[in-house]
Amino acid sequence: MAGIEDIIKQTPFVIVGGVATQYYVPQRQTQDIDILVLTQNASPIERELDRAGSRKIGSLAIGGSAWQLPDGTYLDVIESNKPWVKEAIQKPNRSLDGLPIISLPYLVLMKLEASRFQDAEDLSKVLGVADESTLKQVRTVVRTYLKDAIEDLESFIQLAKLEFQRSQRSRQANLLADSSKPIDLAARMQVDAKDVEQRSVQSSPKREEWEKVMLSQALKSLQDTNIVDGIQTATFANGKFRAILHAPTETLSVVDENQHRGTLYKTRKGEAATIDEFTAQEKERFLQQRSQQNKSNLQPPTSSKQKQQQIEPGE
């Protein structure tokens, strides 16, 4: 995705459309970007796009404008003054890169309003990954702003749950053929330091010792947290760092909780770290904790199935 946050710096906006859908269900692929702004901010955002060297290529039938960004990416700026838009822009979710993503209740509302085939297909996916708390928020938003669609929403929710359950059963069968329990992503990604040292898996990235300890602590902190809008988050290392797991993509980020240095570490299951900003002192501190961490990891699990769930990120 283009560095849209470097282009639009003043005008409030939220990312919608395919990119927003991909945030919740990464199977949805798209190259274009759609953003939502208040109608009164149409002129300010056009000035920002112009200054950045973007080219206006047309107008949108639903209200707004179409642009080509300097890197060739296409951007649709959707303008609206509907009653819910201001709140949706003010209360976004944030991607791991800090981009404002429309929260799931308002994304569902937009797709119910559009009633296109692609939107219906997207609804069956995004609603399937929503927990009960999020579904309650979705129902509240739809009941408030599009009450005639409540019955349709409930139908989509039921279909989505059935589809999600089928996909989960298939995924679990592939990952742990002899396990009948749902797999917690944080537990499945958890590092077992002893096993990592003893096993050689060509497809797994080679991780440094301090990295294994840090990942073990980060993922252990997530075990008792709920997934909200596809995100699990918790602090570790006595509150010094915050682990953020984007469940749909199995991407783990670690940020500085106290000194606000931003993202210090980022990795995805099966891949090497793409960001590593820990200081040498911090890495040494993790190494000093290795013995204690290994001792904790070597404690026998309560069941063989739990032991099966302890795998190194990247396996």
Rank of each mutant, 00 (worst) to 15 (best):
M1T: 05
E5D: 02
D6M: 04
I7R: 00
I8K: 02
I8N: 02
K9F: 02
F13V: 05
F13R: 00
G17E: 00
A20L: 01
A20F: 00
Q27I: 03
R28C: 00
Q29P: 03
L38Y: 09
N41T: 07
E48A: 11
D50I: 04
G58S: 08
I62F: 03
G63W: 02
G63F: 01
G64S: 06
S65I: 06
Y74E: 10
V77W: 00
E79V: 06
W84G: 00
V85S: 04
K91S: 09
L96A: 08
L96G: 01
I102A: 04
L109N: 05
L112M: 11
A114R: 11
A114Q: 10
F117L: 14
F117N: 12
Q118D: 09
D131H: 15
R139T: 09
R143I: 14
E151S: 14
D152G: 11
F156V: 01
F164R: 15
S170W: 14
R171P: 08
N174E: 15
L176W: 14
A177H: 11
D178E: 15
M189C: 11
D192A: 07
V196Y: 08
R199T: 12
S200P: 15
V201H: 04
Q202W: 14
S203D: 03
S204M: 13
P205W: 12
P205M: 10
P205G: 06
K206I: 10
R207D: 02
K212D: 10
M214Y: 01
L219M: 03
L222Q: 02
T225F: 01
V228F: 02
F236M: 07
F236C: 05
K240W: 14
R242W: 11
L245Y: 02
T267P: 01
T267K: 01
G270H: 03
F278D: 00
T279C: 10
A280E: 13
Q281M: 07
K283W: 09
R285D: 06
L287W: 08
Q293S: 07
N294H: 09
N294W: 09
N294Y: 13
P301K: 13
T302S: 08
Q309S: 06
P313G: 03
